[in-house]
């Protein structure tokens, strides 16, 4: 029983982090109807930047995240303006191909800068634990999850309470109407991309002390973040939180009761199963227009 509780706690904590990592993906899809296949590459690049701040300046990853996030946001804007927005204007179907090409470019650049050796940051909490009775709560996961909750809540605040957030909601729900009230969807797109990639950078910072990573880890992370957003329903932010938690727990259970090797297959299996059975996501109330019933 204790082992089960331990596994669940672990799964929920990591699930919160998964939600943070996937929020950017769902936000971009919700507004721009683009599946950003470079999500994993943005995560890994952010993790490497956090890693460099840690190794060269001794900056804690959770603090470093606040330096990395604006840099990544800016990079997001440049790539959006330079490539993705143009590709989407030419052919919406090709935009997704362009984002995947971008993922490979980022992977190659990361490999050229940081090399193929596995990296990870090691702040002093990365291998400590808090004990509650017989349950051990690893500090790294705990801090990462708290961090994820704070950042996601901040993002939710921006979307619910600020003008920018209302503009984003308007542009995603009704682009024509948004234009009438002076919200240019294309400009909102730029903001969305900036915010999404910056949010992703926070996820990458958490990744840097939770996992070892190499440049081509990005493949696996695209799969993982895709699985989170598909579980929750593409485009839904509350869905991402639910999807993250479900995936976290499912993975933890698999690695504890089946095998660690097979736990990496969980996200991909979930993608295929959910799209077969309930393509609008497990937590969506309404079916989507692009999903026929």
């Amino acid at each position: 029983m204790a082992a089960l509780i331990q596994t669940l706690v672990f799964g929920l904590l990591i699930g919160g982090v998964y939600a943070l990592m996937s929020t950017g993906l769902t936000l971009v899809f919700g507004v721009m109807k683009i599946v950003n296949m470079a999500q994993g590459a943005f995560l890994i690049l952010s993790a490497y930047l956090t890693y460099s701040l840690w190794t060269y300046a001794g900056i804690d990853p959770l603090i470093g995240a606040f330096i990395v996030a604006p840099v990544m946001g800016l990079l997001g804007v440049i790539l959006y303006k330079g490539i993705i927005e143009r590709a989407q204007r030419i052919d919406a179907g090709l935009a997704i191909v362009a984002t995947f090409a971008l993922a490979l470019i980022l992977e190659a650049v990361t490999a050229l800068i940081w090399g193929p050796e596995p990296a990870t940051t090691t702040p002093d909490y990365f291998n400590q634990a808090v004990h509650i009775g017989s349950i051990a709560i690893p500090k790294a996961q705990l801090y990462a999850c708290i961090f994820a909750v704070v950042i996601t809540a901040g993002l939710a605040f921006i979307i619910k309470r600020t003008w920018l957030g209302h503009a984003i909601t308007a542009a995603s729900e009704n682009p024509e109407g948004a234009r009438l009230i002076g919200v240019e969807p294309a400009r909102v797109g730029t903001w969305i991309f900036a915010i999404s990639i910056a949010t992703t950078a926070f996820g990458g910072a958490a990744l840097s002390f939770l996992y070892q990573f190499v440049p081509d880890s990005q493949d696996g992370w695209i799969g993982l973040t895709l699985s989170v957003v598909i579980l929750g329903g593409l485009g839904s932010i509350p869905g991402v939180v639910a999807g993250g938690l479900v995936l976290g727990v499912a993975e933890a259970l698999t690695s504890n009761y089946v095998s660690v090797q097979w736990s990496t297959a969980v996200p991909f299996i979930l993608i295929l199963v959910v799209l077969t059975v309930r393509p609008q996501g497990l937590f969506a109330l309404h079916s989507r227009e692009d999903v026929s019933s």
């Binding site: 997704i96 393509p279 692009d290 026929s292």
Partner: peptide, 10 residues
């Protein structure tokens, strides 16, 4: 039951 980009994901 899905279209477009879901095929890429699958």
């Amino acid at each position: 039951r899905t279209r477009g980009m879901y095929f890429v994901i699958v």
